[in-house]
C-alpha cells in the first residue's frame, strides 16, 4: 500500500454548540478518485473548507504529500498543489471566461512587477503563453467558444466547467471538487465524468469529490467515504458502500432500510 497523498486525521470542527465534524479520518491514495458522500448537512463542505484552509479545525490534522496543512492559509495550500472548486461557484463574474482561467495561471505568469509596469521585454510573449494555456484548458472542459463571455453571464453548467478549468490552471496535483454535479443535467454529468477520468489518466491527478448524488460518484470513484451528521459511517469500494445498511438508512430513512433488508 502506497503512502496516501492526502491524509485527514481525527478532524473535528464545532460551530458554537454544533458539531460539524467529529473525528474524521480519511486517506486519499495518489491517483485515486475518492468520493465523500452524505446527505445535506453531513459536513462534506466543511471538510473541504478545512482541507483548503478556510476553516480551522478544532482538533486533528491534515497532511498533504507529507506536509502538515493545519496552520497554512488558503493561498499557501493552493501553492502546495491543491486546487478546488466551490459548491455555489465563486467565479470572477465581471471578467471573461478566459480571464478567469488566466487568474488560475497567475502564479506561473513568468514576469515580474517591472515588466508589468513597462510592458517591457518578454511581456507580450508571457501574456500570449498564459492566454494559450488558458485557452487549452477551456478547450479541455469544452467551453472554448465562450472564452470571451463574461463569466457571470454563462449558464450554470458552463460556470461549473469554467471553475474546473480555472482550478486546473493552478497546475495542481490534487483537485477538490465541491458538488461538481449539482444542478447539472444527465448529459452534462456524463461529460463531466469523462473529463475527470481523462484528467486522472492523462495528468495523473488525484481527485477528491464530494456530492450527495450517489449515481454520479459511484460510477467513477475508486473509493467512497460516507458522512452523516459529521461522522464517518462507512468507507470502501462503491459496491460495498451501496450495500451498506447504515448508508441506506442515512439516505432513505429507517423504514426504507428495513424494507430493503427484509
Amino acid at each position: 500500500m502506497t503512502a496516501p497523498l492526502l491524509s485527514i486525521q481525527d478532524i473535528g470542527v464545532r460551530f458554537g454548540g454544533i458539531v460539524a465534524l467529529d473525528g474524521i479520518n480519511i486517506d486519499v491514495e495518489p491517483g485515486a478518485i475518492h468520493a465523500i458522500i452524505g446527505p445535506n448537512g453531513a459536513g462534506k463542505s466543511t471538510l473541504i473548507n478545512v482541507v483548503t484552509g478556510i476553516y480551522t479545525a478544532g482538533q486533528g490534522s491534515v497532511t498533504f504529500a507529507g506536509q502538515t496543512l493545519n496552520r497554512l492559509k488558503p493561498h499557501d495550500i493552493c501553492r502546495l498543489g491543491i486546487a478546488r472548486t466551490f459548491q455555489n461557484t465563486e467565479l470572477f463574474g465581471e471578467m471573461t471566461a478566459l480571464e478567469n482561467v488566466m487568474i488560475g495561471a497567475h502564479r506561473s505568469g513568468g514576469y515580474g512587477p517591472f515588466v508589468a509596469a513597462t510592458h517591457g521585454f518578454g511581456f507580450a510573449a508571457a501574456e500570449s503563453r498564459m492566454r494559450a494555456e488558458a485557452m487549452d484548458l477551456l478547450e479541455l472542459v469544452g467551453i472554448a467558444e465562450d472564452a470571451a463571455m463574461l463569466a457571470g453571464a454563462l449558464p450554470f453548467g458552463k460556470q461549473r466547467r469554467l471553475e474546473l478549468a480555472r482550478a486546473l490552471a493552478t497546475r495542481p496535483r490534487m483537485l477538490l471538487l465541491d458538488e461538481p454535479a449539482a444542478g447539472l443535467r444527465a448529459a452534462e454529468i456524463e461529460a463531466l465524468n469523462n473529463i475527470l477520468l481523462d484528467l486522472r489518466a492523462r495528468r495523473g491527478l488525484t481527485i477528491l469529490l464530494i456530492d450527495h448524488v450517489m449515481a454520479l460518484v459511484l460510477k467513477i470513484s475508486d473509493r467512497v467515504t460516507v458522512l452523516n451528521f459529521g461522522r464517518k459511517i462507512a468507507e470502501g469500494l462503491p459496491a460495498e458502500v451501496r450495500a451498506n445498511p447504515d448508508v441506506i438508512k442515512a439516505y432513505l430513512g429507517e423504514r426504507a432500510a428495513n424494507a430493503i433488508a427484509s
Partner: peptide
C-alpha cells in the same frame, strides 16, 4: 505605468480580489 499594471497578471489579480477574495485565495493569490 498604472495602465500597464492593470493590463497585466497583477492587474487581473487585483480585480479578481475585488470580485471574490475566497476564490482568488484558492488560486494561490495572497
Amino acid at each position: 505605468i498604472v495602465g500597464n499594471i492593470i493590463r497585466s497578471r497583477f492587474g487581473r489579480a487585483f480585480a479578481a480580489t475585488r470580485q471574490s477574495e475566497i476564490a482568488v485565495a484558492a488560486m494561490g493569490v495572497d
